[in-house]
Amino acid sequence: MERLFSEIYNRYFSIVNRILKTRGKISRKLIADTVREYGFAESLLFMLPKLERNEWELFDEDKASYSPKIKGGIKTPLSRLQRRWLKTAISDPRAGLFLDEEQICRLRDMLSDVRPLFNADDLYYYDRFRDGDDYSDDTYISCFREVYKAVKGHYRIRIEYTNARRKRTAVKVLPYRIEYSVKNDCFRVLCYAGNKERVKKHIMRISRMKSAVPVIDDTDELISCDKEAKRRKVTLKVYDERNAMERAMLQFADYRKNTMRIDDRTYRCEIYYDTDDETELLIEILSFGPMINVEGDERFIRLIKERLMKQKELLVHKDI
């Protein structure tokens, strides 16, 4: 049986290897700095003394400095668990975005002695949207690769795409992140357009792209701005009926939140969200019905009220 919680993946082991990879003599400061940078918060307290006192017999006895007995660190072979995960990964429909058929075949060959950790049909994403991206489409693959190269290379590209009104258009952008949505089963690209005076953020679905090519002789200054989207806070009161508290805590687990208990049946929860995600959060909150009451901010309350007022109007008409 494979183990996830094994010392071979331990953070201390990888820190030791980093230290051993250091060329030449190793100072006490370098050891402490490496532990501080890559360790847990309290690793200095627990790991550093072991290294300093050479309890792991990693260094030749030399009082002036630490000379590693193992030069250049070690290369840890892949564990069976890692090979099995890789075998699963190369069977994912998205693998073709990164690897060509020949590479996938070679990898399959190299991993022929292990079985995958799981197959696609072992998992059933029952509430996933049904209009996910087609990862086998040639245009899609080519756009994905161009965009990805531009993200890594930090250069501008010209994208031709179909906008929300189904009009074909083109834009020069600097892509900086590719985001995968598990719910939508699609990739989106986050990018900047515009110039130094006016930077505009775009989020584009790769499936809408018709072509993506590097901008030739790009002399414009590369724009950049804080990647952080604007943050807002919404305060909710959660009434613990029909297990709403637990459902809410799980559903909002991918947001930063701070929850307080008011009494045995009522909780107050502050959720911090990016403005880009506002509508999505709004409908998630609506899905709880009267079990969640928005207490602030005023703006969010207004958004909820607008929908409820429209709803009341529809019901009034129905009754008439």
Partner: peptide
């Protein structure tokens, strides 16, 4: 498990993001 492979290469992700993953 994929993350452990990256750690062993002293590598890390800075270009990809994920949404709706818990």
């Amino acid at each position: 498990v994929g993350h452990t492979i990256l750690s062993m290469q002293d590598d890390d992700n800075t270009f990809f993001g994920v949404k709706h993953s818990f």
